[in-house]
Structure formats: C-alpha cells, structure tokens
Design a binder for these strands. Structure first.
Lengths: 160, 160
DNA sequence: TATTGTTATACTCTATAACTATA
DNA sequence: TATAGTTATAGAGTATAACAATA
C-alpha cells in the first residue's frame, strides 16, 4: 500500500548510512502537511477574515454555549492569557459575547450573538468546501477517516 | 477500522446541526498531532540543544554536502533571510560550515565539520528512539507507513 | 538585470509573571 | 489561599524590503 524507501535497502550508493531522509520523518511530514492544510484554510476564509483559532473558538461556543473562557481555551490548548485578545476581537466584530455568569462573578460565560450564529452557519458551509478539497487529495472519505484515526492515536485518544 | 461519528447521525439531541466537531476537522487534528510530536522531539533533544529546524538542516547537509544556502532553505520551506541566523548558529557551534563555492563567488557551499559528522551520527540514533515512540503510539510500522503515505497525498507527492 | 547572502524590521503565536476581583 | 480574567512582556517563527557583491 505504501512505498517504503528505508535506508536499510541501500546498496553501495553514495548515500550516508543512518541519516534519516526527510520524507520518512513523521514530525517533519506532519509539519509540512499541517502548513499546507492551514494555508488552504486561510485562503478559503480570506474573505470572511477568519483565522483557524477564531474558527475553532466559534465552533466550540456554537456547539456548547455558556462555557467560560478558561474552559474553551483549555480545550483548544490556548493559554488563557492569550485567549483574551482573541475573544476581544470576536466580541468587537459582534460575533460572540461575554456574559456575567450566574453563580461565579469572576467568570464570563461565552455565547454567540444572533449575527454570530448566522456567521457560524456560513462558516460551516465554507469549511466543508475546504474539507472536501482535502478528501479529494487524500483519495476519498475512507482515507480521511484513516488519517483522523492515526492522528488520534498519536494524541492518545481512545479507539472507538 | 475507524469510528465515524459524523453529525449526520444526530437524532434529536441538543447538538446544533452543521457545525463541525473539532475531532473531525483534519486541519485541527493535524495541528494538535504536530504539536504533540514536536513536543516529544524537543524533549528528546533537550540535552543536545537541538531544535527541529536545526535537525533538518544538519540532516540535509549530511546527506547531500556542498549545496548552497538557498537550496537547503528552499527544500525546507525556510526563507533564505531566516536561514542566515540558523546557519550562523550551527557554524558557531562548530557543527557545520560555509565554504566559498568554486565557480560562483556569491554562494556558499555547506558542509559538516568532523564534529558535525559525529554529532549527526548521535543525532540520528537519538532520533530513532523518538520515532520508535511514535510507531508504538500509532500501533506498528505499517500504521506509520500509512500515515506517511496519507500526509504525502496531502502534500501532492507522487504515489510510489 | 538577476541572483546570493545578508540586515533590518514587523507581525503572529506562544509562554510566563504579576495584578484584580472574586471565591 | 486559590481561581478567572486580565495586562505586560519576551521569545520563537515567519514574512517582506532593501542592500552589497557577484553573475
């Protein structure tokens, strides 16, 4: 299924032994692929002026409204200090808002505005065109499912 | 083989329709996995004080000595302006060196020093322990080969 | 004119410490 | 004392423009 080109196969060519080729380094290829996918994402959302981090924050708020900043930030691996400016921007654009939480007066509960809800609908539709482009490159939906599974394994997720 | 949990399967639960779940977003999961792998890489090479970019530069020079800066930088997707400091550092550490190229007096040809060659040997051995850790997480060498193949497809590489 | 290496600079992401107001 | 949000700041990584030497 896959072309393996390990250095073990070397005969007497001029290639140094033991030194990895870039194409067989998981971290390197992962990085290049991630940059490629983000590039496509950024171009896809250029008109909507939406960055990957903003997309993910809006998606999380849309799916589970009312969570506080620290909760959203933690799920995305964003430091709460860095989350502030991000949320400020979404609030200034009128897409999301901080509300005073009921019980705990320290925390803010995050919600979409009506405009934000509309924006997220459009965003989700546009995202699908981006994702579909990736599926085509991968060679079909099964390949995408396999990729998500393998990435999940790296991240230590429980297999379904 | 893979647990698919698309939103199409939603019945009357309270989950908003059409909004992607983070776990099904290729770019997001790719990013998280890349960060995880780089974190392991950085910890693995903490004692050798080696960053991913430095690793890749040394590996390329080791495998193909004599290339000029622009060539190495371009292969790695690094802007030639940003490559300068990187190469300065490797040179200050005595691992690699710039030599005046024969024909073209503008360009430098890049080589490892003897210490650099020794360093790259050690580096390659250490890298294998890191890569082996990833293989275990993925579930075996075949899974790694499949992952490299899928990432290669995203990058538009020719199938073997 | 074009290219190689270089400097300077700016912008985004990320990380840490410290403050405030609440708990 | 500890936590949520915030501010300030510093460090990577990355991007562009412009320059000198050479082609």
């Amino acid at each position: 299924m896959v072309g393996k080109s390990n250095d073990e196969n070397n005969t007497g060519s001029g290639v140094p032994a033991g030194i990895p080729e870039m194409g067989e380094i998981v971290g390197y290829k992962l990085r290049r692929a991630q940059l490629f996918v983000f590039q496509d994402f950024i171009e896809t959302f250029e008109k909507m002026k939406l960055r990957p981090a903003e997309f993910s924050v809006l998606a999380l708020i849309a799916r589970t409204p009312g969570q506080k900043q620290t909760e959203i930030a933690e799920q995305l691996g964003i430091k709460r200090a860095n989350f502030v400016a991000l949320m400020d921007s979404l609030e200034r654009r009128g897409l999301a808002e901080r509300r005073k939480a009921e019980g705990d007066k320290r925390s803010h509960s995050l919600h979409l505005t009506p405009e934000g809800t509309q924006f997220v609908d459009k965003m989700s539709t546009v995202w699908r065109t981006h994702e579909e482009r990736l599926v085509e490159r991968l060679g079909g939906p099964e390949a995408r499912a396999t990729l998500l599974d393998l990435l999940g394994r790296l991240l230590g997720e429980k297999p379904a």
